[in-house]
Design a protein around this nucleic acid. Structure first.
Lengths: 117, 117
DNA sequence: TCAATCGTTCAACGATCTTTGAACTTAGGA
DNA sequence: TCCTAAGTTCAAAGATCGTTGAACGATTGA
């Protein structure tokens, strides 16, 4: 039932960058960053795409080592592999998340703070 | 004769990440970083691919705003848009370049210092 | 002028990506 | 038990990607 995740050593820079080079996936990462430390179900991201579409994007990020997916009954609990990524690529995630929270860096996205709550 | 480059404001995070999510292009950026401030002709990168292949990758990075391409006779002089990227995405390029210089982060690549000269 | 050099462009290809909807699986609750 | 909710998987489709080789244009130098 456990889904396969790359070990820290197996996480590759171009694969991570490729995984983040997509507006939907970047939006997911931004969302996860805003809920730092917490764990979110897939359904949290339904506003970003259809069920099967999210399944696709989340699998891609899991395989790239960006995200961890844990099974909990019929749920999948998603979290950022923040510590692992910080170990592997110091500063990378920080700068991406900081940028992603900035107006205009991601075309078509709204600034998180612009949403009511 | 001048090739089109996006202005700083037009540089988008997912596009930049996508441009860097490729081993050939990451290698080009690494090479440019090792020659910081200097300007290199396309021919400098011929060990990374064929002429037309490099033309493709360099165009992609130019359009993404990662690289500047200046025409000088029949030459194209390539440079990293380091200052522009630092302004737009503080810390991003630093962490990518630092990582790219690390053994193992980019599968199939050799650490620059591992090469004789 | 002629030839060589430097790089772009094009068409083609196979591969990968992104999205969709329908069918399916699995677990939990009434 | 049966139903529902949460996600996955699959096939299909269209788009984009990365690579190649051939043809092309533009500049430089003999």
């Amino acid at each position: 039932m456990d889904l396969p995740h790359p070990s820290i050593d197996q996480i590759s820079l171009p694969t991570v960058l490729g995984a983040l080079g997509d507006t939907t996936r970047l939006a997911i990462v931004g969302e996860l960053a805003r809920h730092e430390g917490r764990v979110l179900p897939c359904s949290h991201f339904l506003h970003l795409g259809s069920k099967s579409n999210l399944s696709y994007h989340l699998a891609k990020m899991r395989e790239a080592g960006v995200v961890r997916v844990e099974c909990c009954g019929t749920r999948r609990l998603i979290s950022l592999r923040r510590a692992d990524l910080d170990t592997r690529f110091p500063g990378l995630l920080d700068s991406i998340i900081a940028t992603a929270a900035t107006r205009g860096a991601i075309p078509g996205s709204q600034t998180p703070t612009s949403q009511p709550a």
